[in-house]
């Protein structure tokens, strides 16, 4: 418990220091408010937005979009991932195409999605689905692949049916990787959402930033950015906590060759897949 507290304090130290410096710089009059407002100004702007009920509305709209899009991505990505992870002969047919699609950033699809799905919610959902699908899908494939062969032999000896294989071996065996994929996918969809809202939306946190731009309200921009970061971080923390609750065996060492866990310490952006984390990572989140 104490170590957790120390870790939290360490994590908070740099942000707090930055805010203090920011505050001091603003108090000294070193900042030009048109380029970067001081923390007090940002705080006032936040209060102002909140009072008018705009802030809650933006946050609600953004979160709802992410939940719908992310939900669809999971509904598509997990079954497809399980199928391709399990039925290996399908892979040479489909994997190259999927890897090709993965290269195209979700934002690049926005113009087409706007044409196809219109200016409403559907086009934003489509961008989020696209963004979240690949990490979920790829990690699921990886998770099924990593189920130890010896356990497949147990299933053969016990003469498991396909349904039992799915329920007793494939789903729980890939669950840690699927969870990691979902966590990455959630982050991806949050980022893609903001991009989508900046290009075409009339609400949401991305829209808040873009509308602030046309009014040159730097304080509103910073409010939007800070909220995006804070909400994204909270979602990830919540997810990690749920992961630990739901997968109690996860901390145990599976006899699979461990992989590097790129899913810690915030270097996830560089990679969409993470292999099963080693049992004792000694890292922040687990």
């Amino acid at each position: 418990m104490n170590r957790r507290l120390v870790r939290m304090l360490k994590g908070a130290a740099v942000p707090v220091l930055l805010v203090v410096l920011w505050y001091a710089a603003a108090a000294q009059g070193w900042l030009e408010a048109g380029l970067l407002p001081g923390p007090q100004q940002v705080w006032r702007s936040l209060q102002h937005l909140a009072e008018r009920g705009l802030l809650g509305q933006h946050i609600r709209d953004s979160l709802l979009r992410v939940l719908v899009g992310f939900g669809w991505a999971a509904v598509l990505g997990i079954p497809i991932g399980i199928t391709l992870g399990w039925v290996r002969p399908l892979r040479p047919w489909l994997m190259p195409m999927l890897h090709f699609l993965r290269q195209i950033p979700p934002v690049a699809w926005i113009p087409l999605f706007l044409l196809w799905f219109g200016l409403g919610e559907a086009s934003k959902h489509a961008v989020i689905v696209y963004a979240a699908f690949f990490p979920i899908f790829l990690n699921t494939v990886l998770g099924v692949e990593q189920i130890p062969r010896p356990l497949w032999e147990v299933s053969r000896v016990l003469e498991f049916s396909t349904l039992r294989n799915l329920l007793l071996l494939v789903l729980p065996g890939s669950a840690p990787a699927v969870a990691a994929g979902l966590r990455l996918g959630l982050g991806m969809s949050w980022r893609a959402l903001v991009a989508a809202e900046m290009l075409a939306a009339s609400s949401g946190l991305g829209y808040l930033i873009m509308s602030a731009r046309s009014l040159v309200r730097t304080d509103d921009m910073v409010v939007g950015m800070l909220l995006i970061g804070i909400i994204g971080l909270s979602m990830e923390q919540l997810f990690s906590a749920a992961e630990q609750k739901l997968l109690p065996w996860r901390r145990s060492a599976l006899s699979v060759g461990g992989g590097e866990d790129t899913g810690t310490g915030g270097i996830e952006t560089s990679s969409e897949t993470i292999s099963r984390p080693p049992s004792s990572g000694g890292c922040g989140q687990r």
Binding site: P150, V154, G173, L247, W249, S252, L254, S255
Partner: peptide, 12 residues
């Protein structure tokens, strides 16, 4: 068949 390792399902 009893395998060399116990081979229990870690999630059960």
């Amino acid at each position: 068949l009893m395998f060399q390792e116990p081979r229990l399902f870690p999630w059960l």
